[in-house]
Each structure stands twice: as structure tokens, then as C-alpha cells.
Amino acid sequence: MKRFIDFYLTSMKIAILEQLQYRAQNYFYLVGVIAEPTIYLVVWSTIANQQGGSVGGYTAGGLAAYYIVWTLVRQMNIVFTPYGWEDRIQHGKLSMELMRPMHPIHSDVSYFAGWKIVMILFWFPIAAIMALIFKPSLNPTWVQVVVFFIAIWGAYLVRTMIFAVLGLITLWTTRVSAIFELVFALEMILSGRFVPMTLMPVWVQHIAFYLPFQWTFFFPINALVGHPTPLQLFSGLGMQLLWILIGVVAVRIVWHFGVRRFSSVGN
């Protein structure tokens, strides 16, 4: 256990130091990231104003809060991409990871956790500017705040597991980009990334409930900006836990069978 903690702390520290080296790059990156929710925010607040002030229960201020919190949740959601797994597997870089005395996913989880700490630091001024411009209405209770802070880390782990399983498909076939893109598209629609789930038709919300995606986007955001009941808050955390467990088991199974298929001379 101590070995793991040491590894995680060191790996996070390396990620933090690496990220701090290239500050211009971080801001380029963040501007790219806030462009997306700003577009959605403009589209949906235009509609809200056309409809006499609100759409699906969201006022312009509520939408502003949703999409500003979105930017933080999106930062938390960044994980090692399936394309990264594709690169590792197709170019033989996985050989190096296999030499380590622990599963390669540990280095991803810890590295990206460190990266996030830097990103959150860089995120604060941008969120402040967005708040000044779009005037969000946000007044959560302290329970909501606590659940939000747990939920963003839960979201991170859920998404790490989904995308690790997805990336590991590369062990079986080399033409994975179409599969990846399909999953990204599903996620876009069913996670609350494009629009709060409550604006979706009811049947879509039902489908989304049984998929992992909305627990990584809509649930954490709504936990802070919406008016969820305590039951919804805690069952949401429960769903995250469930998906993390399912994800861990899935990664183990896929890894167990897949890694034997990996053959590479490495580099």
C-alpha cells in the first residue's frame, strides 16, 4: 500500500512540474476548452430568451451556471484517451509499460490526477471572467458542494475506466477510430455535455440513466447547480461507485485476455 501511495504522489508531482513548464500551452488549451460550452450556452440561452425566459426549467442564469461548472467538470473528465491506448499498442510503447511491476493504468490515473491540479489553478481566472460576463445564478447548499467535490473525482474514475476498456479494443483490431468516434458521439448526446439532460425527451433520459455517460457529466454539474433531492445526490454517488466497479472488472477482464495478444518488439 505504501508503495502505491509513494508511486501516486511522485507521479502526480512529475505531472504538476511538467505542466507548469509550458504555461502558454495551458492557456491555449483552456481557451479551446471553454469555446465549446460557450457555444452551447449562447445557443440555449438564446432559446431560453425566445421562449420567455426559460427552457426546460433553466433560466439564462441557470444555463450560465450549468456551462461554467461544465468547464471544471470537463477538466476533471480528461483521462488518457483511447487514441493514446491505440498509439501505445500499435507503436509498441506498451512493452515499456509491461516491464513495470504494476498495471499501467496506475500511472495514467496518477499522472492525470496531478495534471488536473494545475488545470484547476489555471481554470480559476477563466471561470471568474466567464462568471462576470454571463452572470450565473448559483446558490448550492453545503451538502451539494460536498457531493460535487466527491462526484468530480468519481466522474474522473468512471471515465478513466470506460476509455481504458475502449482503448484496449486496439489489442484485437487496428481499425478503432470509428468505434471511438461512435462512443464519443454517444457520450456527447447522452452525458449532458451538449445540453442538460432535463432538456432531453423523457425516453432519452431513461436510456441515459442506464449508461455510464451521464454520471460523468450531468450528475456532477447538476449536483451543484440544480435542485437535486438528497436521495438523488447519494444514489448518484452510488451509481458512480457502481460504474467504477464495473469498469475495474471490465478493464481486468479485457486486459487479462487482451494482453496475451500483444506482440511487439517495442522501441
Binding site: A24, F28, Y29, I34, A35, T38, I39, V42
Partner: peptide
């Protein structure tokens, strides 16, 4: 000048995505 700018692709795509909607819907400054 900046050497490491991998994120530019991300930045460009993020900004280009604004074109999916007519720019007339955006607030003046944007």
C-alpha cells in the same frame, strides 16, 4: 517562439466549432 504548442489543434477545433451556428446569434464581443 513557443515551441510546444500541441494544444493548438484543440484550440482551433474548439473555435471552429462555433461556426456550426450562425455567428449572428453570439453576443456582440464574441
Amino acid at each position: 517562439w513557443l515551441i510546444r504548442i500541441w494544444e493548438l489543434v484543440n484550440l482551433f477545433q474548439g473555435l471552429y466549432a462555433a461556426g456550426r451556428w450562425p455567428v449572428t446569434i453570439y453576443p456582440q464581443w464574441l
